[in-house]
Structures are given as C-alpha cells and as structure tokens.
C-alpha cells in the first residue's frame, strides 16, 4: 500500500513544479465560486426562503458543494486513462508490478489533496468571508460531514475510473468526460440541490451514487438529515462504494486482456 501512497505524494509534489499554474488556478477557482454563490443570491433576490431553505443555507450549500468537485478532477482520471491508451503508455504501466487503476486513482487523490489545501480552502474562506457561511448544524453533523467528504472522494474516484476504463473499448475518452460531466452536474446536486427537484426525480436521484458526491455531504452539514438518516445513508453510500470498487476490478480484468498498444 505504501507504493500508492508514494504515487500520491509524488503527484502532490509534482503540482508544486508548476508555480504559475497554481496562481492561475486560484484566480479561476475564486471567480467560479463567486459566480456560483452570486447566482443563488440573484435567484433569491431578497426572498427570505424558498421551499423552506434560507439564502444563508443555500450559500453554504454552494460553497460546500465545491469542496469535493473543486479538488478532484474526474476528467483527469478519465483522460489520464484515455491518454495512456492513445499514446500507448499503458504498456509502460503493465510492465510494473503495480495496479494501473490504483496508480491513476492514487495520483489523482494526491493532486486532489494539493488542490484542496492550496485552492479549495482559501477560495471558500474568501467567499465565505464576503457572503457568510453557516457552521455545521451540530458537532455530530460536523464530524459526519468529514466522513461523508472522504466517502465522496472515494465514490467520485471510483466512478471516474469506471468511466475511464470504458475507454479501453472506445480507444478515446473525450466523449466519456463529457458524459460524466453532464451526469454529475445534474445528479450530484452540484447545479441544483435535490430539494428543488420534482418529488419523484428527487427520490431517484437521492439513491444514485452521484448523490454522495455533493448533495449528502452538504445536506449533512446543514442538518437536513437527522441522526438516523445521516448514519443509514452513510451505510448506503459505503455500499455503493463497494459495488463500484467491484465494478472497477471486474472491468479492469476485462480491459487488461484486450489491450492494443498504439504507436508500436
């Protein structure tokens, strides 16, 4: 396991090698978070609450929602696999006594840790200072938010790997990135929280694995789930993560026997 930790660490350090990119990213991220919050401020337009949700809660939701998707780049997991296939570098990976999917995940988690510390925390803090942000509903909800956050990273990473491995059949990953982006925008609750969804759609969305990426961590922080619901949905999320992990393993087993090394 220390191998994958070493991959994550070196990915973290590699990010530091491109100093200017760090600054450019920070400015971009800041604009993005401001925009997301500004949209909700505009929608509320002075109304105290919509569907029982106050503007303050909504701003907090928007800020927290970016905590996971702002740090991890599912598209770089998918395109990482796609690029390794396109250039034939996947061959180099198969030469090592290590698992290629785990390497891709470890590397992206290393980068995500970097972005979380360097990009997400500062930008969220700046925007929160401007618009205000609610604290967790209770210490229990605060602790569970951290647990849900880690689960969210696990699920988005596994989902991306699953999507990425499909590239072994398509030999291109671009369409997969777009597909994943569209699905995430809608079904993770990132664009619009489920409580604004029509009831049947909200129920379905709340039980798909995407919901654990944005919706549940933020909803838990805001105390929209009571203690029992918080714990049982966490169990359900763990179940999804396990299922996805099995899916990745099976798909990789299939994929690795049908490798075509491009470019000789």
């Amino acid at each position: 396991m220390s191998v994958y930790f070493a991959f994550a660490r070196s990915a973290f350090l590699t990010q530091l090698a491109y100093r200017h990119e760090v600054w450019a990213n920070m400015i971009g991220k800041l604009v993005q978070v401001f925009a997301r919050v500004a949209i909700w401020v505009a929608i509320y337009g002075g109304t105290a609450s919509i569907a029982g949700v106050s503007l303050e809660q909504m701003v907090t939701y928007a800020l927290l929602g970016g905590a996971v998707t702002g740090a991890i780049r599912y598209e770089s997991i998918i395109s990482g696999i796609g690029q390794a296939l396109r250039t034939g570098d996947v061959a180099v990976w198969l030469l090592k006594p290590a698992s290629f999917p785990l390497y891709v995940l470890a590397t992206e988690l290393g980068r995500a840790a970097f972005r979380f510390v360097i990009l997400v925390v500062p930008t969220v803090a700046v925007v929160a200072a401007v618009y205000g942000m609610l604290p967790p509903a209770s210490p229990f909800h605060g602790v569970m938010f951290v647990a849900y956050g880690l689960l969210a990273y696990t699920i988005i990473a596994l989902l991306s790997a699953l999507f990425g491995l499909v590239a072994f059949w398509l030999l291109t990953s671009f369409s997969l990135e777009w597909m994943m982006q569209a699905i995430l925008n809608l079904l993770s609750g990132q664009l619009i929280p489920f409580w604004f969804f029509p009831a049947p759609v909200a129920v379905i969305a709340a039980h798909l694995p995407f919901a654990w990426i944005v919706y549940y961590p933020s909803a838990v922080w805001l105390g929209r789930l009571d203690v029992t619901a918080t714990l049982s949905y966490f169990g359900l999320g763990l179940g999804w993560a396990a299922l996805l992990a099995v899916g990745v393993v099976l798909l990789w087993r299939q994929a690795s026997t049908r490798i075509v090394v491009q470019g000789g």
């Binding site: 061959a91 180099v92 090592k96 006594p97």
Partner: peptide
C-alpha cells in the same frame, strides 16, 4: 503479469 514484472526489466527506446 505482476509476478513476472518483478523479475524482468524493460527499456523501450521510444517510450519513457
């Protein structure tokens, strides 16, 4: 593959 990989070394001139 992985057990094999531990005991061999490979250099590709065209791939780093």
């Amino acid at each position: 593959r992985q057990a094999n990989a531990r005991e061999i070394g490979v250099v590709f001139g065209q791939r780093s």
